[in-house]
Design a protein around this nucleic acid. Structure first.
Length: 263
DNA sequence: ATCTATTCCTGGCTGC
DNA sequence: TGCAGCCAGGAATAGA
């Protein structure tokens, strides 16, 4: 599933190819993925020039002459450059040169137009690499409950999803159900470092391709080969050899090493 | 205010 | 072999 590293990978390959291009046509094949009636999305986007491309958390933001286009890939979304439409293509955005093809098998993803930055994006918390250790430690103490659901909460911290939360907690040696506010300063510092390190390595590897994720050229990432816990239930922990366990935390599949991540 | 459970969606897997 | 039923999960939403 596309999280911060996957969105960043797509963005880097797309940015030089769409910046300065004009949107010449918009075909909405599935109204589910748009925030308004298809003809409105077409009307707001057509004819606009793309001035730049940014990422905020897991959102891609295309700055236009007037307003902005936001894209969230959720689970199975793909944003491809110049691809041939498939059975799962939901929107095709024709550019003055090339095209953007938004595919999404499960249709959880969204491609929207907004006059200004929408509240769900302005409400997002800082990204792990943009928050200082001191500030991160302070933020942890303001919340109740387990650490894993908190790290998944995008208004607390943005960019992490299920894969990178599990990998970061393993790297920091913290149990997913540990109380966030009661983490020792050492543990909190270790967690901060782990998140930055895991995300940085994942970006370098072009993201994780678990099921559907590919970049804008349709290429898979490599970071799934470096996963220590995610999707590895029963397999040995690379650090200590104990069998990786899978539990459910906050309705999410959660992978951890019972030896390295004691409660 | 903050936290928790439910909903959306469909290909692939499980088991009878 | 065929097919019903379940599972994956990010974020909006409703409820506690």
């Amino acid at each position: 599933m596309p999280e911060l590293p996957e969105v960043e990978t797509i963005l880097r390959s797309l940015e030089p190819r769409v910046t300065g291009r004009r949107i010449t046509s918009v075909k909405v094949l599935s109204p589910l993925v748009a925030n308004r009636r298809p003809e409105e999305l077409v009307r707001h986007l057509t004819g606009q020039r793309i001035h730049g491309l940014r990422r905020v958390g897991k959102y891609m933001i295309f700055d236009l002459d007037s307003g902005l286009m936001t894209v969230h890939l959720r689970m199975t979304g793909r944003l491809l450059y110049g691809a041939r439409p498939s059975a799962h293509t939901r929107v095709v955005v024709g550019l003055s040169r090339g095209s953007l093809v938004f595919d999404d098998m499960r249709q959880f993803g969204r491609m929207e137009w907004h006059a200004a930055m929408p509240p769900n994006i302005t409400r997002l918390g800082p990204e792990p690499m943009d928050v200082s250790v001191t500030e991160f430690c302070r933020l942890l103490r303001t919340r109740r409950g387990a650490i894993k659901p908190l790290l998944l909460n995008q208004t607390f911290l943005s960019g992490l999803g299920n894969i990178y939360v599990d990998e970061s907690l393993h790297q920091a040696g913290i149990h997913p159900l540990a109380n966030a506010a009661k983490l020792s300063r050492t543990k909190a510092q270790r967690l901060h470092a782990a998140m930055v390190e895991v995300l940085t390595s994942a970006i370098r590897a072009g993201g994780s391709s678990i099921s559907d994720y590919v970049d804008s050229d349709g290429r898979r990432g490599l970071f799934q080969q470096s996963h220590n816990v995610y999707g590895r239930e029963g397999a040995p922990c690379p650090h200590c050899g104990a069998a990786i366990r899978r539990i459910v935390v906050g309705q999410r599949g959660t992978h951890f090493c019972p030896a390295c991540q004691k409660r």
